[in-house]
Amino acid sequence: MRKYVPKGNVQKKAYYTDRFHVVPRVPRNEVEDAHFASVVSVLKADIKESYMELGQLVIHIDNRSNFDVIKVLKEECGYTQCSEQSAVDYLAQDNEFELFWQMLNVNEAKRVRVVCRLPQGMAIDSIESLFKSANFAEREMFDMFGIKVNNHPFLKRILMPDDWEGHPLLKTYPLHGDEFASWYEVDKIFGKAYRDIIGPENRDPSKIDIEDTKRFSRVGYEVPFGGEYNSDTKEEIEYSDTFLVNYNKPKSKTLDERR
């Protein structure tokens, strides 16, 4: 198992890099396609930056104009599906989230990604009134990143329990969970008084506890199942004769011909 390294500053400093690893850069091209050029010209006032990436149009917008831009994309440019929407955590780097909406035009077979930056603590406008699919996507974004969404009909956690604390997809959230997460089921079912009885989670899959005589036994120091741990008396092991092979046993006589 690789040694655990604290990942609090994961964005500032890579905690693990392959010697020969090269970060792949996706080439960004000019907008040349006629359809995408028309999309850019329609949205000219709102677009900060636009380029082509892997055959898709990417447009960067201001975080206050996301509803208007997506409405224009839907009603004027034929992007009738919002196939994915979420956020990326750039808090350590810029104290901002990057939000994106992946739009699909089925008739033209074209995709547009709408991207905006959102400072921490700010809310974004919901596009639920345009696309019903945004309902769950925005709830998931709220659940995983804590980004609040204005005008959402039912902004509630969708994956984690309602009484959960913390937002697991933030880069600062530990993979094994924080204090709250590690005791969640014990606190909820039995109460905090049971923490001592049940004990902390075992996060090491190769953990060996020699004092646990129910699940482990040491050769030569065997005690009865569940008995007291014994570190003193070593008992010689007696092997059964039937399992020993006698290599000096004389070979049986082989007859040359059948009698």
Binding site: P168, H176, I189, I198
Partner: peptide
């Protein structure tokens, strides 16, 4: 038994905890 390969924040690490 142990949480298995889901060594994460959201999985109970062995049902014998509850």
């Amino acid at each position: 038994n142990t949480g298995g390969m889901f060594n994460t924040y959201a999985t109970v690490q062995g049902v014998d905890r509850i």
